[in-house]
Design a protein around this nucleic acid. Structure first.
Lengths: 162, 162
DNA sequence: ATTATTATGGATACCAGATATCCATAATAA
DNA sequence: TTATTATGGATATCTGGTATCCATAATAAT
């Protein structure tokens, strides 16, 4: 299990956009150059972010991308959801194992019961909760918090030089 | 990003073994039958679990598998680590993006600095912490806790019938 | 010791999804 | 009108997960 590179690219691109809140728009050329990814591939990623309302895009001369909302309102969770998709990380694939049958009531209809079992798999439940632990943390982390940390470090760096 | 099916199979198999602490050994045939997975594939999974000291295996007539230690000492984390591998879920792949350069000191050697940057990527840091949130939860969840919950439910089920 | 049984591990095949590129088109600003 | 930039469809490639087969080793029962 691995986060996709797309998520990596997306997060780095967003931080870059956050740093460039000057003359707004940042072109795909600048982005791909800085991140070291091809323009064509990064385009797809930026399009996805746009479709999800995380960035705005404007074509034409001096066009490019900018954050669609303040950096403190863009969480890591938002980005991960867009890039990785919204399915659960863990799906129980067998509805007939022993511990599932432990919960069986033989009087219930086989069809609906199997469906219920699926949702009630204790293992899936644990894994789902674990997933939520991670997501909860990611909800609290924003693009802005990375910017703050980066600027803080640069600052204390320069202080050390003097 | 998805947990692999192998992890699903492994967890279900372990719960099954936990339920069968009677005459010890459970053969691959019984396991694969109950889980609805082919013997050949499940074998690989069980071998992995054995190599990692989570189950014991004995060949020959009436051979099979059993838990190598009490179910309360086998955590979900243990299983996930074996099946999914031990690499980080998130790896920063670009060491030259803007926010990385923010941290650059130009006097440091380029080689070692890039290495340091990698480890110091703020985005990776956030993602790593998120991962740890999930793992911490999984460390607290054991095969035994699933067994307990399953037995508890069955009990209250039967009480309802009366 | 022999035999039947069971786990092990190497080789291999297959498929889906991630990664990546190319190009024609649409939209926009100068 | 023109140059520029984003968009999206088609496609190619690669990697890892999923899965099976088979020869071999190990063990218990006889």
């Amino acid at each position: 299990m691995q986060f996709s590179k797309s998520t990596d690219y997306a997060l780095h691109a967003l931080v870059h956009l956050g740093l460039s809140e000057r003359s707004s728009n940042v072109g795909i050329k600048e982005l791909s150059g800085t991140l070291g990814v091809s323009e064509s591939y990064l385009s797809k990623i930026m399009s996805k972010l746009r479709q999800d309302g995380i960035v705005r895009a404007v074509p034409g001369v001096n066009g490019g991308y900018e954050l669609a909302r303040p950096a403190e309102q863009i969480s890591f969770f938002d980005v991960v959801q867009v890039m990785e998709g919204r399915q659960q990380l863990f799906k129980c694939s067998n509805s007939r194992s022993q511990q599932h049958r432990l919960l069986d009531e033989e009087e219930s209809a086989p069809e609906s019961q199997r469906e219920l079992d699926r949702k009630e798999c204790l293992i899936e439940k644990v894994m789902y909760s674990a997933e939520q632990q991670m997501y909860q943390y990611l909800r609290e982390q924003t693009i802005q918090s990375v910017l703050d940390e980066a600027l803080k470090r640069r600052f204390s760096h320069e202080m050390n030089k003097k």
